[in-house]
Design a protein around this nucleic acid. Structure first.
Lengths: 118, 118
DNA sequence: CTCCAGTGCTACGATATTCGAAGCATAGCG
DNA sequence: CGCTATGCTTCGAATATCGTAGCACTGGAG
């Protein structure tokens, strides 16, 4: 049973980017990937790294990620597969962008105290 | 060298990447960004593009995205800000990767029928 | 064998988030 | 006025996630 057999939440098209966006759009998914960027982590270490997320959800995410071929379990603990590592590399510019974005947003907020959003 | 070896492990430190990951990790957020990659879309058009997502959630996401400075409302409808467009550019390699990933996964799935948590 | 500590993982009630349908207020048209 | 379309809100119900406790297993010590 792969990811592709079940109906993709929010999209019936089955387009890979939709499947990926759907998978990554679940709570904690990207965070788990992110925390696995270094060394392998045990279930409980991973749980601690993610600010004590629920074991039930962690287990579910781990299953989804393993199903997706992004994460695998080794003797040392959970770790990224080569594919998972490739994906994480793609996150690197995201990180750089986030830093820039945060600075701009801080500057914006200083200039315009209140944005009418309603 | 990456920006990956920074000490993120300690819970929510307010690091921009964490904020971004948290924002993007909400249901539909990335999908909305993705659907806005082309022309501007009206509220209802956006709702239809996202397979009929709830207007309540769409409105909430739109608010978060506008708050984050990624999306704005114009006369033609909702559209990406320059910043939002920058972020979306980073998604393109993600798209390319997803296609490759799907092919590999399908091939894998054909060989190993089932293996996962039962 | 028992006790202690660690592992991956599950059960289950409580809470947060999202769904789905209906409705409100506004605007353009005839 | 009625018709259509817009952005958006409301609210009960479904679903996802949380938080705590606990199970089955392993390894070391006695």
């Amino acid at each position: 049973m792969t990811l592709f057999d079940r109906p993709v939440r929010g999209s019936r098209s089955g387009r890979p980017i939709m499947v990926l966006l759907d998978l990554l759009g679940r709570r904690w998914t990207m965070r788990v990937l992110w925390e696995l960027r270094g060394e392998a982590l045990s279930f409980r270490a991973l749980q601690a790294a993610c600010s004590g997320m629920s074991p039930s959800v962690l287990n579910r995410r781990l299953g989804e990620l393993r199903d997706a071929g992004l994460v695998e379990a080794s003797a040392a603990g959970y770790t990224l597969t080569p594919g998972g590592r490739e994906l994480l590399v793609l996150f690197e510019p995201l990180n750089r962008w986030a830093e820039h974005w945060a600075q701009e947003r801080r500057a914006e907020g200083r200039r315009t105290k209140s944005h009418g959003s309603g």
